[in-house]
Amino acid sequence: MSAVDTTPQSPEKTRMSIRSVINNAGIGIALLLMILFFSVASEHFLSANNITNILTQITINLVLAVGMTFVILIGGIDLSVGSVMAFAAVVAGKAITLPGLGATELIILAVLAGVLAGMVCGILNGVVSAYWSLPSFIITLGMLNIARGAALQISGAQTIYSFPFAFEEFGSMLIYGVPVVFLVALALVVIAWFVLNRTVFGRLIYGIGNNEEAVRLAGHPVFWYKVAAFSICGLTAGIAAIIYMARLNISSPIAGIGFELNAIAAVIIGGTSLSGGRGSVIGTLLGAFIIGVLANGLILIGLSDFVRQMITGLVIVIAVILDHYRAKYSAS
C-alpha cells in the first residue's frame, strides 16, 4: 500500500489541514450564527423536542450527501440519488412484505436488497461514465429516469406498506433524545472522514479531482477509483432508502423527488468545490445542518413557504460565491 502513497509532503500537509480547519470554521461560524438567530427569534427552537426533530430531519439528506461528497470530490456529480433511493426503497419494500418469512429474516433481506439495489445503480453510473469518459451529469441524469421508472414499474406505482413492527421501532428509536437513525448517519460521516483522510484510496479521490492525469500517470487505476466513488454514492442512497422506510413505514415509488439537489447543496455549502479535489465530509455534515436548521427555523419564525424557498436558494448562491474567494485565497 505504501508503494502507491501520494500524500503531500508534511509542511504542505500541515498547511492544508490548517486551511481546511479555517474553511470548516467559517461554515461552523455561519451555522452558529444561524442557531443564535433562531434561538432568539423563536422560543421553541432550542427545545429538546425541536433538536430531536432537526436531527431526524437532516438524517436522510446527510446520508445522501456523504456519498455525494465522494463523487463531487472526483469532479463528478450524481443527479440520480433521489430516484435511486426510491428504487432501493421499492426493492426493499417488496422484500420486506414477502409472505411466509419471520420478521428478522424479512428485515435482514430488505436491508441487503435495498443497499444492494442502490449500489448496483451507483456501479452502473460509475462504469458507464468512467469507461467512456462521459460527463457524469448526463449519465446520472439518465439513471435518474431509469431508477425512477424501475421503481414505478416494480411497485405498479403503488405505495408499499405494513412492515414488521421491529423495523418501525428502529426508525423512531431515541437514545437520550438523539434519533438512532441520525447516529447511523453520523457513523457514516466518521467512516467517510477516515476513508478520505487516512487511506490511500481517500487521498487518491482528492488526487483525481485535482489532477486526474497525474494520478493516471503515477500508475493508479483511475477507472476503478471513479467506479468506487459512484458505488459509494449508490450505497448511501440505498442506506437512505432503508432509513426512509423505517421512519415512515411505507416505501413509495415517488419518494425522494428532488432530494439530489438538497444533497448537492449540503456538499457545496459545506465547502466542497464543484470542480473537485477540495473539500471535506465534515463540511458536508455542517452543510446538512445549515440546510436542516434553515428549513426548521424559518418555519418556526413563521415565514411563508415561498420566502423560505427564496432564502434557501440565496444561501446556496452565497456559499458558492464564498467558495470562489476561498479558492482564490488558497491559490495565492
Binding site: S42, H44, S47, N49, N50, N53, T56, Q57, I60, Y244, R247, L248, I250, S252, I254, A255, G256, I257, A295, N296, I299, L300, G302, D305
Partner: peptide, 19 residues
C-alpha cells in the same frame, strides 16, 4: 406545502407542531 410528499410532510408538520 409539502409537495404531496410523505417525508417532506413529516418534516414540515413536525416543525409546525413545535411552533
Amino acid at each position: 406545502t409539502a409537495h404531496w410528499e410523505t417525508e417532506e410532510a413529516n418534516q414540515v408538520f413536525a416543525t409546525m407542531l413545535t411552533a
